[in-house]
């Protein structure tokens, strides 16, 4: 047998040793190289814990936040611009200080993170659905279908995500008028993020599909007579999900950043439903007057969230790429 990898060599040895019994699912996971590489990388374990904690804080914001920043009754303008507790003139009720309207920064961060995450997840789900479908179809069908889809992707790629999102927002404002902007802001954001990110999924899935479709297991399925749609869904899709998971993770981080950027630029989430980006935009006006905490703390929260997700994505990519192991 020609040039063999270690794994093939192991398999060949196994040829002579008979078949060991099948381990249970849990044992399979605990014993897997993937889980092992997870435990071995301390940074990844920390990042996973950090991500989990941040997600929990965000989604449980109404229960864990010390204040409700949207409850107008509990906000007092007298509490405006209180610095964090370790500074002079601070108030022990507000750990990280308050903003110009007297809202607790820490609570606003929890709630803002929730909005950022919801936008992030929804847009990743939408982008992945569009991208995977088009990528599978383009890769499997080839020919004209492929050419058309990929030319659209090429044109799309000409514009970075942020630009597309801005344009869509501008166009939407032109159609709906600025008054309804606040109502539609959330949906416009999801649409523009999904339309900016689908290309990555489509290209990756297309590439992997083209490799997979020439593999013999797909030909075997075709010889059996299984129709194309079933082959794509049952045979190819599960085999191209690895890279998709990596992109989705990194994409979640990117979506959160892009949402924050749009909100910072004033075309994302409105101040009535502030995401982390909106909070930073609000705080930016007070940076020069020395009230730095209004912008910096939400910014750090954003960076922490994105960093953790990115770390997970990085590990996932390395763990799924057997060539770099």
């Amino acid at each position: 047998m020609p040039y063999v990898s270690n794994e093939e060599a192991k398999a060949a040895v196994q040829d002579r040793a008979g078949i060991p019994p099948a381990p249970s699912r849990l044992a399979r996971i605990v014993d897997s190289d993937m889980f092992h590489s997870f435990l071995r990388s301390k940074v990844t374990v920390v990042a996973a814990c950090g991500t989990l904690i941040l997600f929990l804080l965000a989604f449980l914001a109404p229960w864990v936040a010390p204040h409700n920043p949207f409850d107008l009754a509990s906000i007092s303008i007298l509490d405006a611009r209180v610095p964090p507790v370790w500074m002079e003139y601070s108030d022990p009720r507000f750990l990280l200080g308050t903003d110009d309207q007297g809202r607790d920064i820490l609570s606003a961060i929890f709630y803002g993170m929730r909005i950022s995450l919801i936008v992030g997840f929804c847009s990743v789900a939408a982008a992945a659905t569009i991208g995977i479908t088009l990528g599978l179809v383009a890769g499997y069908m080839g020919g004209r279908v492929d050419a058309v889809i990929m030319r659209i992707a090429d044109v799309q790629l000409t514009f970075p995500a942020i630009l597309i999102a801005l344009l869509i927002d501008g166009v939407a404002a032109g159609i709906f008028g600025s008054i309804d902007r606040e109502v539609f802001a959330f949906y416009i954001l999801i649409v523009s993020l999904a339309l900016s990110f689908w290309v990555q999924y489509a290209r990756t899935v297309r590439g992997s599909t083209m490799v997979e479709k020439n593999k013999e297991y797909v030909q075997a399925a075709r010889v059996i007579g299984i129709p194309s749609v079933t082959i794509m869904a049952r045979h190819i899709l599960p085999n191209v999900m690895g890279p998709v998971m990596v992109i989705a993770t990194i994409n979640l981080a990117l979506a959160i950043v892009t949402e924050a950027t749009l909100s910072f630029l004033g075309v994302g989430m409105p101040p009535t439903q502030p995401s982390l980006g909106t909070l930073i935009a609000i705080g930016n006006d007070f940076l020069y007057s020395g009230e730095w905490w209004i912008a910096i703390f939400p910014g750090l929260a954003l960076a922490l969230l994105v960093l953790n997700v990115n770390l997970l994505g990085d590990w996932l990519r390395d763990a799924l790429n057997p060539k770099l192991r």
């Binding site: 981080a253 950043v257 930016n284 910096i296 910014g299 960076a303 994105v306 960093l307 990115n310």
Partner: peptide, 9 residues
């Protein structure tokens, strides 16, 4: 991981 605008800030 740091958004461009936050780096600027």
């Amino acid at each position: 991981s740091l958004p461009t605008f936050f780096i600027g800030i």
